[in-house]
Design a protein around this nucleic acid. Sequence first.
DNA 1: TAGATTGTTAATCGATTAACAATC
DNA 2: TAGATTGTTAATCGATTAACAATC
Lengths: 210, 210
Amino acid sequence: MNHPSGISELVINRLPRYYRFLGEIMGEGNARISSRELSERMGLTASQIRQDLNCFGGFGQQGYGYNIEQLHSEIGKILGLDQPKKAILIGAGNLGRAIATHMAFESRGFRLIGIFDKKEALKGQIIKGLPVRSVEDLDDFCRENLPTCAILCIPKGEAEELCGTLIARGIEGFWNFSHCDLTLKYPGIVVENVHLGDSLAKLSYNIKNK
Amino acid sequence: MNHPSGISELVINRLPRYYRFLGEIMGEGNARISSRELSERMGLTASQIRQDLNCFGGFGQQGYGYNIEQLHSEIGKILGLDQPKKAILIGAGNLGRAIATHMAFESRGFRLIGIFDKKEALKGQIIKGLPVRSVEDLDDFCRENLPTCAILCIPKGEAEELCGTLIARGIEGFWNFSHCDLTLKYPGIVVENVHLGDSLAKLSYNIKNK
DNA sequence: TAGATTGTTAATCGATTAACAATC
DNA sequence: TAGATTGTTAATCGATTAACAATC
């Protein structure tokens, strides 16, 4: 068992993509789709799609295929997108601001309820309708509003420093844009890393070796 | 063979992380590290590290381990970080601006040489020392400066539209922040996707099922 | 009913881990 | 030399693909 939920991580990685494609296909007017047709659109095998979906139950019907809208909704539920989780964003620099304004949190299972920065100069500035707060107010804010997820748009050092505090305040999930490996220090927590530097280095390799 | 270079994609995914850790460890004063010690730091097995590295050649020495600085430099070369590739950024909105200002392109094998947006209002604005140009100037700019990589910070529809043009102008690699799957339409190109929405949905799943 | 397509089992393939001889 | 640790082969484990009976 690779993952607490008993489902392989590779399957979980594919779920958001299924969800995205089904969302697009929904707009085309057809009610049903077969694993074969979906596989051709997504560049997978039909077998893999059926295997993946059957980790969570039989959503299809023999001889018919899958109901697009129903499958989309089921995957949304599996991903927990129907249960908005309260998130706070730490670090209102370039990246933090972009994430706050650019991301469709609501349609991905989150609600952004607070933005924090240690720079006093930013305090009170409004981003996406939310005032930037001082990190000193984190304690009170968490007690009152009970966020369960933190988005880290701060440098490595600060992230490592703050992570323990955030866990103590009830944060269970991190969307981590900082270049630190939180899992090594805090094995229990849930972390989704977005290591843009690693991604860019990978692109470099692939361009070089294409 | 999973990958044009003959190396498994899973190995390539790990290379930037090796590079990052070795960079950190370099600062600690020791000259050498064993696969066992590195494995403990990174949360991998020593076996896997040795297997991974031996895809590219024997960088270690029996009884001694690996020279940290040399290994760091070798992996950098494998990733092509020592050969700066000219990149242009398309889309100077929130996300594009953050990427332009925030990313350490130079240390990841790239050099940002141009920023483009279709909004006339942004034209001439300076970001990271570069003036925002009109997308209409793309043609001339590419002919003159020969960029080989494009960073797509534009919506899905525009990305799909522009991608073909960019390929015709000599772009061979894409760092794709838009929600479209370029590989399906243009099978030959190199794409590194950063699908932030998918990443967030995955976090949602993992919080739900932790 | 006949055709289509799933759910599921079996076969294949690839990746990770373990073991150990080679060698510094 | 003796100890350590690699490079590499073999064993295990897991993921993907193929096949097909079940069934709509």
